[in-house]
Amino acid sequence: MEAATLSNLADQFARDGYVVINVPEALPLTDRITAQLAGRFDDQHRIENAWRMCETVRELATLPVVLETLAALYGRPAFPFQTLNFDRGTEQLAHSDTIHFDSNPKGYMAGVWFALEDIDANNGPLRYYPGSHKLPQKTLVDFGVERLEGRNPYVLYQTHYEPGIAQVIEDNGLVSEDAHIKKGQALIWAANLLHGGSAISDPARTRHSQVTHYYFEGCSYHTPLLADGGIYRRYPVDIRTGHNIGGIEDGKPLRVPLVQQAKSAAKRILRSGTTYDRVR
Rank of each mutant, 00 (worst) to 15 (best):
T62A: 07
L63F: 01
P64I: 06
V66S: 01
V66A: 00
L67M: 02
L67Q: 05
T69I: 09
A72V: 07
L73A: 04
G75T: 00
R76H: 07
P77V: 05
P77Y: 02
A78L: 05
F79Y: 15
F79A: 11
P80S: 00
P80C: 01
F81M: 00
Q82F: 01
Q82G: 03
T83V: 04
L84N: 11
N85S: 12
N85G: 01
T90K: 05
E91T: 15
Q92S: 15
Q92N: 14
L93K: 14
L93T: 13
A94I: 10
A94C: 13
A94L: 14
H95V: 03
H95I: 09
H95Y: 09
S96T: 14
D97Q: 02
I99L: 14
I99R: 08
I99V: 14
H100E: 05
S103P: 06
N104L: 11
N104K: 12
G107E: 10
Y108K: 07
G111S: 05
G111R: 02
V112H: 00
W113I: 02
W113E: 00
W113R: 03
W113G: 04
F114R: 01
A115P: 07
L116I: 04
D118M: 04
D118A: 08
I119K: 08
N122P: 00
N123H: 04
G124W: 00
L126H: 05
R127M: 13
R127F: 01
R127Q: 13
R127A: 12
R127C: 08
Y128R: 04
Y128I: 03
P130M: 05
P130N: 05
G131R: 04
H133K: 07
H133S: 09
H133P: 01
K134R: 15
K134V: 11
K134Q: 15
P136V: 12
Q137H: 11
T139F: 09
T139M: 10
L140R: 09
F143M: 09
F143H: 08
F143T: 12
